[in-house]
């Protein structure tokens, strides 16, 4: 565990807490893509099945359990508790366009052809594109609430910090995992346009709006 990895985890944790707080405090999930949240729940469920097969550390177990539990709690808030505020007309990205190609890729490009390893690979690939329904929704409505922008920024920074962690681990530990690295770079690149808007608008006190 190095400082970049830890910062990445903290950023990820912060993103989830910002999202839950936003929905809970405003009693509304307006502007949030339920589809991205379903994809994230699928990501954590398929990745953390090793909770049943191996124990690494209390930290590792606690974080995995938190990510799984919070993803289902978010889905509950969007689709049940505050479903009247869910903006389904703007959440029109087709999940199967992401899940099916990613599933095929996980069967073809993986470290080991075993069920758990294929599911882990699937979750790494799926995570890299899981934010697309949310970004699609923002581009469709042309705007995002400031709190939603903070959520997206923290979520984007998490994988960006993991990349720095992988560079560090490559140099100091000789460890690298090409599947995680390539997927992590794809994931971070998808946020670049948003990062630009965040820095040029949100950090200057303006709401995030896209040119028409």
């Amino acid at each position: 565990m190095n400082v970049f990895r830890l910062s990445g985890d903290v950023s990820h944790l912060l993103a989830i807490l910002i999202l839950l707080m936003k929905i809970w405090k405003t009693r509304s999930c307006a502007g949030i893509s339920g589809k991205s949240q379903i994809l994230f729940a699928l990501v954590y469920t398929t990745r953390y099945l090793d909770l049943f097969t191996s124990f690494i550390s209390p930290y590792n177990t606690a974080m995995k359990v938190f990510f799984i539990a919070s993803s289902y709690a978010t889905i509950y808030l969007i689709y049940l508790k505050f479903k009247a505020t869910y903006d389904r007309n703007h959440d029109t990205f087709r999940m199967e366009f992401l899940v099916l190609p990613v599933l095929v890729l996980a069967f073809v490009v993986n470290h080991d052809f075993t069920p758990l390893e294929i599911l882990w690979t699937f979750s790494i690939y799926l995570e890299s594109v899981a934010i697309l329904p949310q970004l699609f929704m923002v581009s469709k409505t042309g705007q995002a609430e400031t709190i939603t922008s903070h959520y997206l920024f923290a979520l984007g920074m998490y994988r960006a910090l993991y990349i720095v962690n992988w560079v560090y681990r490559y140099y100091f530990e000789g460890f690298y995992d090409l599947i995680a690295i390539i997927a992590g770079v794809v994931q971070t690149v998808l946020y670049c346009d948003f990062f630009y808007l965040y820095v040029t608008k949100v950090l200057k006190g303006k709401q995030l709006t896209l040119p028409a």
Binding site: S54, I56, F175
Partner: peptide, 10 residues
């Protein structure tokens, strides 16, 4: 290196 099923990173 980590074993394939021993995933420390999240």
């Amino acid at each position: 290196e980590l074993e394939p099923l021993d995933k420390d990173e999240l």
